[in-house]
Design a protein around this nucleic acid. Sequence first.
RNA 1: GGCGGCAUAGCCAAGUGGCUAAGGCGACGGUCUGCAAAACCGUUAUUCCCCGGUUCGAAUCCGGGUGCCGCCUCCA
Length: 477
Amino acid sequence: MALRVYDTLRGEKREFEPIEEGKVGIYFCGMTVQDKPHMGHMLAFVAGDMIRRYLEYKGYDVTYIQNFTDIDDKIIDKAKEEGCDYLEIAERNIKAYFESANALNIKDATIFPRATEHIQEIVDLIRVLEEKGYAYQAGRDVYYRVRAFANYGKLSKRKIDDLKSGARIEVGEEKEDPLDFALWKGADPSDPGWDSPWGRGRPGWHIECSAMSMKYLGNTLDFHGGGEDLIFPHHENELAQSEGATGCDFVHFWLHNGLLNLSGEKMSKSTGHFFAMEDVLREFDGDVVRFYLLSTHFRSQSEFSRDRLEEARRGFERLQLACMSIEENLGKIGSASGVSAPAGEQLKEAAAKAKENFIAAMDDDFNSAGAIGAVFELVRAYNKLLDENAMAIGEDREALEEVKGTILEFDSVLGLFKMGLPGKLEAIPPEITALVDKRQEARKAKDFATADALREEIERAGYVIEDRPDGARVRKK
RNA sequence: GGCGGCAUAGCCAAGUGGCUAAGGCGACGGUCUGCAAAACCGUUAUUCCCCGGUUCGAAUCCGGGUGCCGCCUCCA
């Protein structure tokens, strides 16, 4: 089966062909670290991570680049407000990014380049643009001459003349044309800056991504991703810079994730909405959040709310319980090899079918939502066969290993189980175990009133009891 | 105003020309259980916003309408 991917530039899906056999280069726009990450940021990075993992699953050697833009107006303003160095602001937010990324089981990029560590590459790129007539110095700044680039607007499907109304010239700017954007901004002596052929200054937004992506991935990238909101102006400008400088196609496939809305309202920190990643992670486990984010196609816009996460938590629990059941059965078999029964064969068939559906979904523009559907189909098949043939399934090592292996394979792409397949029950505190034991005694004595009262107490403490033929089992709710 | 997207069950959400319209959450009925929980079975879209058209055949393609949303130089 061939992987088909939608490309924002061409506006259609087409078969993916790597530029270089067996290898894939992805540049995913990271954060401008002026603030801590929120759910919207993490949706983008989880999507990028899932895409990267699937390409690796397909056997490609993937180079995944995700930048940090660690210098911009807002960062400088914040530093002034707090009376600290701009890098302190950047470092703090980069740290917060990694905390969230870690909770969401996002694999580290191959390289995390930072704008301020690539000033030389940025300057070199601007000089090339200058030589080719795409850039000009005006006062202390250097601008990109938008009208010089014939294809300007091709990514965002904008006509250059329609843009005029939105364009503006800030006080102190000496642009030739309001559409032109800054490649280099002259800096006051008190602001952070670097020496350059145009005087002391700092890079404009956009240029760092062109410089860093091409440094690490070459003139043409297989994939370039980011939020839909970056299409214009950020990616349009990157494209103009890169293609202007090299004359090559910049990107084969532009990937843009849909934006996450907050119950119809604009996200906002000031209104205290539940949106900052650290707030979300205080209430929900990272794996649940990841499951939620992957259960909608990454290109869809969607409304985010606490209810959606609650729903995801229950759905994810179904998956976890099935995994635990598989592990439990495998554990019981021990080293003895089980006998394969017809039910076991059916289970193996279900695993194969689920794998087929999983790959078909992922091959269709990285449809993780469809792929998760395939995972649940396997869960149901397993539960059903186990329900009907507990003995046969519970002792069929080969079939169980097959299901487990299939789920682990799925998870190499979905990344839901950071610690491996959920198997062991969480440690139960002794005070809870004591209550469970008391309840068992009451049940033995047929004192169900006491037993039920104890169960309620245990549930209030956040634990669920499942009475099984071989005894009571407790798990954390 | 310009550009783009979406409209599938109570809710979330796959499916973009042809098997019974995935899957999850919820609800109801049943099996199991002392009762629960978990799990399983059944019911919950004879139909995919509306109206036309193309086609042997459309949720899927085309035209029109309605509604919602996003972007338009802070933005993942």
